[in-house]
Amino acid sequence: MNTKVPKLTVVGAGPGDVDLITLKAIKAIELADVILYDALINKALLDYASNDAELIFVGKRKGCYAYQQDQINELIVSRAKSHGHVVRLKGGDPFIFGRGAEEIDYAQQFGLETYVVPGISSAIAVPAYQGIPLTKRGASESFWVITGTTKAHKLSNDVALAAKSTATVVILMGMGKLSEIVKVFSKENKQDTAIAIIQNGTTEYEKFGVGTISNIEKIVAEKQLSSPAIIVIGDVVKERVVLNSIYKEFATA
């Protein structure tokens, strides 16, 4: 009979680079009895898990879901009741388009103790690794972070609102809607606005393309860029600084 307290810790795994993980996240992984992990997390993080921990993949790849969200919710509760401490390991930050709050809401209905460990959001870290500051004096005073695809599988209406502003616009999960995004910004006469697309950001498989609203689709085709990728639109893309390779610098650290 399990005598452990049933609890859920929702943990942000960061944007992909295994070193972009918090100490608190590592401690949670080490103490987990069960880890439910998504497709976009760096699997090297699972090496921190106990040998006795049960590891369950619950993410999706190319539209194929290992589990639907309702099933994940039920799995969290059932494993917490039977095993104790469940860690829900999610890419980036779990409270930024990560359904972390939804899972906590569900778990609390069944009396689970609930905790969250914030993660480094890909919305900020991925552009940074390419030298793109989301804000910079004289270029941008604010930034939007928008999901490219809503629950109804449509482009968020917020993209049109953001296109009217002078802010930097960061779009997650938007590659499938790139043509629509281009049309929205073109409608605001922003064909010459700089745009960057970063695929597999902060990982060794990172690919990068930069251009303007008017030619980005051509660049995406030439460079064969695809999901998972982050779209950054705004003058800050032209303010990109040149960085040395993070992988070379810290490879033997």
Rank of each mutant, 00 (worst) to 15 (best):
N2I: 05
N2C: 08
N2M: 09
K7H: 08
T9W: 00
V10Q: 07
V10I: 10
V11G: 10
P15G: 12
P15H: 02
L23H: 07
A25L: 10
I26E: 01
I26G: 02
A28R: 05
D33S: 05
V34E: 07
A39W: 14
N42Q: 07
D47C: 06
S50L: 09
A53T: 14
A53L: 05
E54M: 09
I56F: 11
K60I: 12
K60H: 12
K62L: 07
Y65E: 13
Y67H: 11
D70W: 09
D70M: 05
R79G: 09
V86Q: 07
L89M: 07
K90F: 10
K90M: 08
G92Q: 03
G92W: 07
G92I: 01
D93L: 04
P94I: 04
I96Y: 13
E102S: 06
D105W: 00
Y106I: 01
G111W: 08
Y115N: 15
P118L: 08
A123K: 00
I124L: 15
A125M: 05
P127N: 10
P127V: 13
G131I: 01
G138L: 08
W144V: 01
I146R: 04
T149I: 12
T149K: 13
T150H: 06
A152Q: 15
V159N: 06
A162M: 02
A162D: 09
S165I: 04
A167E: 04
L172R: 07
L178I: 15
E180L: 01
I181K: 05
K187N: 15
E188L: 04
A196Y: 03
I197W: 01
G201R: 03
T202E: 02
K207T: 11
F208T: 11
G209T: 02
G209Q: 00
G211Y: 00
T212E: 09
E217R: 05
K218S: 14
I219V: 15
V220M: 04
V220R: 03
K223Q: 12
S227G: 13
P228K: 03
I230S: 03
I231L: 06
I233S: 10
G234D: 10
D235E: 15
D235S: 15
E239V: 00
V242K: 14
N244L: 12
N244G: 15
N244I: 08
Y247L: 11
K248D: 14
T252H: 14
A253L: 14
